[in-house]
Computed example of a mutant assay.
Amino acid sequence: MGVVIPLEEGKNKSASIKPLVDLTKADMDRVNQLILSKAGSDVQMIPEVANHLISSGGKRLRPMLTLASAAMFGYQGEGHVKLATSVEFMHTATLLHDDVVDESDLRRGKSTARMIWGNQASVLVGDFLLGQAFKMMVDVGSLEALDVLATAAAVIAEGEVLQLSVAKNMETTEDDYLSVIRAKTAALFAAAAEVGPIIANADKASRSALRSYGMNLGYAFQMVDDALDYGGKAADLGKNVGDDFREGKITLPVILAFRRGTQEEQAFWRSSIENGESSDENLEKALGLITRHDALKDTIARALHYGKIARDALAPLPAGPLKDAMMEVIDFTIQRVN
């Protein structure tokens, strides 16, 4: 089940994160070693739960951005590896908590940790990873970097609560949606990109540029994810198509289709989302309405808009392979819908 989303703008069809992967490979090997070390514990269930998600094949884009943004300004030291690992632990903890809140069964094509070990273990192991992340931040010794990542952790938690408050509420506006994804996704991308220039002692303009890049890349990333839930394939998503619909999540494709719909169509959305009438038949109808009202096309158009802002944010920074690779990540992020 799914629909084809036509991409415009003449985008680079071969966009890849491989240049970024190659440029950060040596440091990412160290990050991966540190991840395994810091996920260890004498309490047997902790590494079992943590490694279940850590080893499940995520791209680890966020820690690569931390490594790349530090290297861009000539950083020499060990701090970027610890901060990149902290970023990945924050992300992993968020996923563990998300799956409990959302009652998700699949994550990256595998059963979620909560389905195997239960909700309590998932939440507590997420807390353990957050604790380890903050210990590594302290080890780095940069109060500025610690402040950026600690603030992001608080914002992410706020985003989770905000998402709960708007779930299954068809009065949710596009501004409400933007507030949720800014907190839940964009904030960590922004922090991951900003702490690199901080520990490299880059100037404030460069630090702000990387933060803007990360923030707007995060917006684009989440919008594409939300489009994929209605326009992708289960094999590519690592979860079931329509999971957001079944969970009553108010994402941008739903908001646009609802706002543009007839009274009869709006009544359908209310019964499906607010009353939980999310049968396969209703999902098919929802996909039809989303297509009819160009909701996926316009969601991707908005993602392209934020991608352009991210590109403009990087523009003033020194030219080089790292900058080129980070530019290409923008195209890759949006190209996932093709």
Rank of each mutant, 00 (worst) to 15 (best):
M1W: 09
K13W: 11
L20Q: 02
T24M: 11
K25Y: 10
A26R: 13
S37W: 09
K38P: 00
A39P: 06
S41Y: 08
A50N: 01
N51I: 04
I54P: 01
G57H: 10
G58A: 12
R62H: 08
L67S: 05
A68W: 12
G77A: 08
K82G: 09
T85W: 08
D98C: 09
V100E: 06
V100M: 03
S104I: 03
L106H: 01
K110P: 06
V125Y: 09
L129I: 01
A133S: 15
V148Y: 07
L149Y: 04
A152V: 09
Q163H: 05
L164A: 10
M170C: 15
D176L: 05
A192K: 00
A193T: 06
E194V: 04
V195H: 01
G196F: 02
A205N: 14
S212F: 03
S212T: 15
M223H: 06
D226K: 08
K233P: 00
D236E: 14
F245S: 00
I250C: 11
I255G: 09
I273V: 10
E274N: 00
L287I: 14
L289R: 04
A295W: 04
D298M: 12
I309W: 00
P316I: 07
P318D: 02
D331F: 09
T333G: 08
Q335G: 11
V337C: 10
V337Q: 08
N338Q: 12
